[in-house]
């Protein structure tokens, strides 16, 4: 139960961050599996804002070599990446 609550919390926080980023870019809706880079929600600078947000919010450390598209492709991908780190 605790893990489920934690997972929901992670996804909600990521969704909220992405929603705000999308608003700034004029993108009205983002689904969990939508590519954030291709849809223009996350640009080169946005990735680093996202990394800073994840490091601060979830107390995880993200290495240079982990800042690649596959880890930040979509809300669902980011959630998997963060949960993997939290469960390590």
């Amino acid at each position: 139960m605790t893990e489920q609550v934690e997972n929901v919390n992670v996804k909600d926080q990521i969704r909220e961050f992405v929603r705000e980023a999308a608003q700034r870019k004029g993108v009205s809706e983002v689904t969990d599996d939508q590519s954030l880079v291709e849809s223009g929600v996350i640009d080169s600078l946005g990735i680093f804002r996202l990394v800073a947000f994840l490091e601060e919010s979830f107390r995880v450390r993200i290495g240079d070599e982990e800042i690649v598209g596959e880890n930040f492709e979509s809300i669902a991908g980011i959630e998997r990446f963060v949960l993997n780190k939290l469960n390590r």
């Binding site: 680093f48 070599e65 690649v68 598209g69």
Partner: peptide, 16 residues
Amino acid sequence: LGKEGSGTAIFTASME
């Protein structure tokens, strides 16, 4: 170098 599509990550890490 790295994976296909990881150019932006490589460049931004290098720039940092």
